[in-house]
Write a protein that binds this DNA or RNA. Structure first.
Lengths: 259, 259
DNA sequence: CGTGCCAGGTGCCAT
DNA sequence: ATGGCACTTGGCACG
């Protein structure tokens, strides 16, 4: 019918929908179904969702998603690797998804199916994400100037009695510094963490907390303890890993606006 | 066209699809779109996903989901509350989703749209889940012997300067105790949490960390600090609440089988 | 709005 | 498999 489409049905009989689902599961297709149904879940926890109109998605790897009108998260789900069974019982279309470990069950009971479609998606693209975690520290390690001009990194993730600070280093004036880095806004916890490392040190050390931003209360405590905050320019740092194109296009498109 | 369906289009021109999306967004409909597109994300992190066939879902609350062939999780997303803009630029259909705080952007660039549909879902059902969180603590409150024999709960979720411990109580020997409960395996974080509460207290207190299990390193720190670990028997605790009905119906359906 | 903390968290990589 | 930890974690409740 459609390119890449296995098929689509409007208002199928429940039997038809059941057959459609079973053949789609066997054929490793992605199923999207809009209908009126209820959902039960039993496993690590348990849940019950009465009748309502929702979207059901079943993927070829056995993962199942139930989406309501709103919310980023599915109201119920089953991760990849589950066994799907489907059929009509007592005038309702049942879809059961069983997870082996941990033992979990998801049951979808259809009263009506409004629309059901199954497709084979061709998607070989690699998902690139970054800079994240290690890559992020790699970047800072290679470019300590993004923390502070003239800084030289001495050690990274060195174990200390009180924990593991992200970096130790030497600043442009020859002072030893201990550096705690946060990828998102630093809070009171971050200051405490730095403080622990500092307290376990003998001799003169500077303490630096480096993050894209910091909460007011955290900055207050930080200052009082005589440590320094260094704003981390995430955008500039990101630009080092050749993600520029995106940013530019994004900005450009945003300026040009849509609709 | 269809009951509850606002519309559906197969292989629309990109301009048509853009108009369709814009009117659906204005009309607070749920949009599902299967097409060939690429995705870029920029915000707390950044990501890039080249051309491929995927499913895009846009909900009335502004949340956006991009699903690939496999995997329970969306490859890219935007949570509720985002501003959606859409239009054709340079022969491609762009969909931009902007989040205000934190500042984050998601850009979807369509080469082709295979299928697009928008619907108004009627769904007033209440989602019931349990025993979770409160119910769980209710149970422990009513049955403190599952934490420790002879324990008497004194307070629950009492605010303290350093946070809110789950319980305070008095043990069989008359010692005051502070109790931190975890529903899943306790980690180093859990110990730290308990430690914070303990340190903010004057006078003699016992500290108890109660969880189904605990990581080795967490137990080490816990012992060193002189606190106690109490194994929580989740199964026994769960058996106190009657969620059997679900289990039975589920089992029955599973036995009867589908397909 | 920040802070703290749970979640059916999920996923990844170590042992 | 299990442990340990990061995540664009998201979400909620509370000061």
């Amino acid at each position: 019918m459609l390119c890449h489409m296995n098929g689509i049905m409007f208002y199928p009989l429940l039997e038809e929908a059941g057959d459609f689902i079973n053949s789609s599961v066997r054929g490793k297709k992605l199923i999207i179904c809009i209908g009126l149904f209820s959902v039960e879940y039993l496993g690590r926890s348990s849940s019950n969702l009465g009748l309502g109109e929702r979207v059901l998605m079943v993927k070829e790897d056995g993962s199942v998603l139930v989406h309501r009108r709103v919310g980023y998260e599915p109201v119920n789900w089953q991760p990849a690797g589950c066994i799907i069974r489907c059929g009509v019982r007592d005038g309702k279309l049942l879809l059961l998804s069983e997870r082996r470990r941990p033992k979990e069950f998801l049951k979808v009971v259809f009263d009506k199916v409004y629309l059901i479609t199954s497709t084979s998606l061709v998607d070989e693209a690699r998902f690139e994400i970054g800079p994240v975690e290690n890559e992020f520290y790699d970047l800072l390690m290679a470019h300590p100037e993004y923390i502070e001009e003239g800084l030289r990194i001495v050690s990274r993730q060195k174990s200390m009695p009180s924990g593991i600070p992200d970096f130790t280093g030497k600043d442009s004036k020859g002072n030893y510094v201990i550096i705690e880095v946060k990828r998102s806004m630093a809070g009171v916890d971050s200051v405490k963490q730095l403080d622990r490392y500092m307290k376990s040190q003998r001799g003169h050390f500077r303490g630096i907390l480096c993050a894209p931003s910091i909460t007011k209360s955290a900055l207050l405590i930080l200052k009082k303890k005589g440590y320094d905050f260094r704003r981390l320019n995430l955008k500039a740092l990101s630009s080092l890993v050749a993600f520029k194109p995106y940013e530019e296009t994004l900005d450009r498109h945003l300026e040009e606006g849509g609709s």
